[in-house]
Design a protein around this nucleic acid. Structure first.
Lengths: 223, 223
DNA sequence: AATTTGGAAATGTTGGGTATTTTTGTGAAT
DNA sequence: ATTCACAAAAATACCCAACATTTCCAAATT
């Protein structure tokens, strides 16, 4: 009998490297505008010259790192303009996608939204008690899963792909606010509840309003 | 005195490779779902194993080729669903961008739009007479420049980037319609004129209507 | 029908060579 | 003494070639 690896989470080397660097950029281990020297990255994350370049090329296409010819790669900058731009585009994409999902989604989709929301509430309870790195990562993952579930049923693979990329770009800012304790959980909880209610009521307008409130809570710390 | 190279068009190898493959996919030399074997690509376009992989990784992020783990790359498929999806997302992106451009654009922007429209009209006159490859490429470039000029002043680098990628994905279909003689130039000309008029009148609503008509002419051959 | 097997192709590594950027160092001029 | 220009040098990115490993596919065998 032959046993095959059943984990299958990260198949290729560059997928692993990309995941690691993506995480470190999001959590602030790699700072904005920081120069990404290939040699240093290789000693830190492993992989060959080749694999690392391909990984950075991939992340560059995702918007997390910037590539300039003959001058290598560096972490994407994060000025206030960048934050506004990213969240603006992400807002518009999610508006469209959630409208389509509300039209096309079935009962199973409603179930996925409810489940993801439940998990998110649990994770926020957890992070309220102790905010170590592990719970922060779990909370981050719950946020991602909830956000993804909302547009899961929109039926457009390209909208989903765009949402994923823009979400990854905006992760940094949300996690930075978390570290600074500037995140208004009460407001987020309310808008997320309103979001779920609007989805279940199939009310596009209310869903978009709640979505805007939710995203805006990642931009402005208060009021 | 030191002279530096002033051309600087395509510096790196992978930029040149990407441009060549992009063009060949758009013009149908490389067909949808066609398997892209590294060896064959290298003998055809040059470059090393390494550079070719990095190029395909880049194009994969642009949506022109699809990458599957352990099974290499292939040209992105082009089913009817894909066409609809791409044009739908592109429509939504351009709607948002042109709205912002009409708000933020200055007189210089109006000038760029008029200039690009003028060049497009000239190019369409040229392609009406003889449709060899060179005039087709010039027409294609004029279309791109016009489309780009419309959202030039939107002020969002990410929206511009998305538009560029989606436009590149939809180029194939427009050029395929051109080859089949299914492109309704009269209708396109009318919608483009309406687009310019709406821009000059700063009428967002009319601009979006005209934009939808223009994009729809790339989807349905007639009616 | 299920398994073995062999080749094709993708993936990954190592090493080396070239060109460009960036830094460092030196000397002259203010 | 400080500053500026310019050149040497180190660092780094970019590219290529050859090799090893893994995986996939399909024909051949049992």
């Amino acid at each position: 009998m032959i046993l095959r690896r059943d984990t299958q989470e990260d198949d290729t080397v560059i997928a692993m490297l990309a995941a690691a660097i993506r995480r470190d950029i999001s959590f602030g281990t790699l700072l904005p505008d920081q120069k990404l020297k290939l040699q240093a990255l290789r000693t830190r994350y492993g992989g060959s010259n080749h694999s690392m370049r391909e990984t950075l090329r991939l992340l560059s296409a995702e918007g997390l790192v910037e590539a300039t010819t003959q001058r290598g790669f560096r972490v994407a900058s994060a000025t206030e303009d960048d934050v506004r731009d990213i969240l603006m585009v992400r807002s518009e994409i999610e508006k469209i996608a959630i409208g389509l999902a509300i039209e096309a989604g079935d009962v199973a989709w409603e179930g996925r939204v409810i489940a993801a929301h439940h998990a998110l509430r649990k994770a926020e309870d957890g992070i309220a008690q102790n905010a170590d790195d592990l719970t922060a990562m779990q909370w981050d993952e719950a946020c991602r899963a909830f956000s993804y579930s909302l547009i899961d049923a929109c039926g457009s693979p390209r909208l989903i792909d765009l949402q994923r990329k823009l979400y990854n770009q905006s992760r940094r800012f949300r996690l930075a606010l978390l570290r600074e304790g500037q995140l208004n959980f009460a407001r987020r909880c309310a808008s997320q509840q309103a979001l779920v209610d609007a989805v279940l009521a199939r009310n596009s307008e209310a869903a978009i309003t709640a979505l805007m409130a939710d995203i805006k809570s990642e931009l402005q710390p208060d009021i």
